[in-house]
Design a protein around this nucleic acid. Structure first.
Lengths: 135, 135
DNA sequence: AAATTATGCTATTGACCATAACACAGTGTC
DNA sequence: GACACTGTGTTATGGTCAATAGCATAATTT
């Protein structure tokens, strides 16, 4: 029973990625958040007043795919939208949004820890460097 | 415009994974193959007579999700199914299947090369080691 | 003024993953 | 032999996410 894909970096790449995502998504518990939502929240937190399209560019999410994400976040009352010039709508965290960031950050940290615990601090850091070179 | 996810290994992980997949899927050209199909083909090649469930276990694909994959491959005439004991069905490559493996391997190699070219031989190899430690 | 670009949005499609349930065959164990 | 248990193939269904095409509007550039 040989697995010929063991030799391929690409194989392990999707494997580890989905492993990390599973850990993160589980860490959200019954909050009903998915990882794209959390990523968007983090970007908004770091760039208050950012526009929906800019978030998409940063995260490589299509404009059209941003719509339901932002819609969900607004529905939950985690973000606030303020009309800017023209069609621009500046997005920021609402007070509830600020509050939820603790949970979100903890979840993403759980994913990081799951990886780091299997690699050690040094391995984790080299992995980070290598992956950054690719993306 | 700061991207707070730059610091997260998990972020780069899904990024690089989807980058690699894109390269691979493009390399299939108009063959109409998807990467799970190619992965299944490689496993069958390395383990003739293997069962559909075993492939799923090896690749972490649910039994139920194996059905359409195997169905597609059979429809293309790339695999052959031979009735075994009970409900067991042994799967092997057909002559056409053997022939197509060249293209499939080339595609997966293209993905590997895309990564390796950004990392160098040494970086590629350390990345391989690190990822194997996780999965 | 006209063309171009940016933004937000709708709608649709397709890939992939996940769960539940069913039917059937074998392998035990009592 | 009757029984539970496990493995296999299958159907059905829903959810998440990515990708494409197209539309309307507004700002910017020429």
């Amino acid at each position: 029973m040989r697995n010929p894909l063991e030799d391929l970096v690409g194989f392990h790449l999707v494997r580890t990625a989905s492993f990390g995502l599973r850990v993160v998504n589980e860490a959200y518990g019954d909050l009903g958040v998915r990882h794209p939502d959390a990523a968007v929240m983090m970007v908004i937190e770091a760039n208050p007043g950012i526009t929906q399209s800019s978030i998409g560019r940063m995260l490589k999410i299509q404009r059209s795919n941003m719509v339901p994400i932002i819609g969900r976040l607004a529905e939950r009352g985690w973000i606030e939208r303020e009309q800017g010039k023209g069609k621009r709508i500046g997005i920021s965290l609402s007070p509830e949004g600020v509050q939820i960031m603790g949970t979100l950050r903890a979840a993403s940290q759980a994913g990081e820890d799951a990886i780091a615990s299997r690699l050690g601090t040094e391995g984790y850091s080299t992995l980070h460097d290598l992956l950054r070179q690719i993306s």
